[in-house]
Amino acid sequence: MHALILNGLEQPLQLSETATPQPAPGEVQVHLRAAALNHRDVWIQKGQYAGVKFPIILGSDGAGIISAVGAGVDAQLLGREVLINPGQQWGNNPAAQGRSFTILGLPHNGTFAEYVCVSAASVHPKPTHLSFEQAAALPLGGVTAYRALFTRAGLQAGERVLINGVGGGVALLALQMAVAAGARVWVTSSSAEKIAKAVALGAEGGISYTAEKWPAQLTQQAGGAFDVLVDSAAGPGFNHLLDAAAPGGRLVFYGGTHGAIPQVPPAKIFWKQLSILGSTMGTEADFAQMVALVEHHRIVPAIDEILSLAEGEQALRRMDQGLQFGKIVLQIPG
């Protein structure tokens, strides 16, 4: 098969021929039709991710058709159109992932290839209203957004939501899911264009996080402070989110791209009775419920650009530069 292979630290992805994986007992082989990028792929290429090994086929997101099944797997699955849950072996505790938890694309070969083998429990029916490219844009970002909003923050209809740093796949899916659930959503970004695009997807407004005293301005714009705040940056801006939170608010974050959180005045948290919540990926139940939500509300993930598998290195560079609005997708020949 053809696959994009990363052979070393800071090396470009190489489109090469490699052995086609065969399903072990309990596994299915998926003939991939599309794969999507995540920042994780860039971090692995740069050596900024634990457990890096080479050679490796990157890619956590993928959608395709089941083309073979291993021993013990129902043969009726053959030919099914599916998307893949990239979270493997979550464990028995729904509150947090276990020590055996891994994400597709490292340490095991991922979806930047014509074929991949995964546990039969990891594949879910592709929502009927989505193309393969749209479905491939959903898994990692979708389950991360769903768990952050609903499992961790307990979002309810009518609540005000603030999504900090809109533009990436998780943030946009969180926006779309929150709107579908009946919440009122505002966003921040350093880009006026990204804020305008977020409004087109259902946000009620937004503000640049570079603006002076932006929490007060956005709170006035929204008619009140925010019940749920979603963040992936952390860093110095974290204090601003505490200022924007309503009493009893829940601040959930799933990343820390801006680094460590500086000293926080404790009264900002205890006097407002805030909840600070961490979230990572999601359980099999989270994933199934996310797919059901997307199907029911016919949510279509925002796609920035669709490129060919051979353009994988170009796609990584676009993501590294932070130019995208939505997911960058690789189309894989059928």
Rank of each mutant, 00 (worst) to 15 (best):
A216T: 08
N164T: 08
V230I: 15
A198E: 08
L140W: 00
A233I: 10
I207W: 11
V116E: 10
A225D: 06
I163H: 14
A120V: 11
A234P: 05
C117N: 13
E133V: 06
N164M: 02
A121L: 09
D231E: 09
L173N: 02
V143S: 05
A234W: 13
G154V: 04
L130Y: 15
L149N: 05
A120R: 12
A121V: 06
G202M: 05
R147Y: 13
E133T: 11
G224I: 04
L140G: 00
T111A: 07
G110N: 08
S131H: 12
I207K: 08
A180C: 06
G235L: 04
L173F: 07
N239D: 00
A198Q: 09
Y115D: 09
A174I: 02
H108C: 07
G223N: 01
A136S: 14
L138P: 00
A234D: 04
L218A: 13
G202C: 04
A234C: 13
R147D: 06
F132T: 05
D227W: 07
A178Q: 02
G167R: 06
R184L: 11
V166P: 01
Y146N: 01
G237A: 02
V161E: 07
P215D: 03
V170A: 00
Q156F: 12
A203T: 05
V187T: 11
S191T: 14
F132G: 04
V179H: 10
T111H: 07
G205F: 15
A180K: 04
A203P: 05
K197W: 15
Y115W: 15
K194M: 06
V118G: 03
K126D: 01
Q220A: 15
G142M: 01
V179Y: 09
V228Q: 08
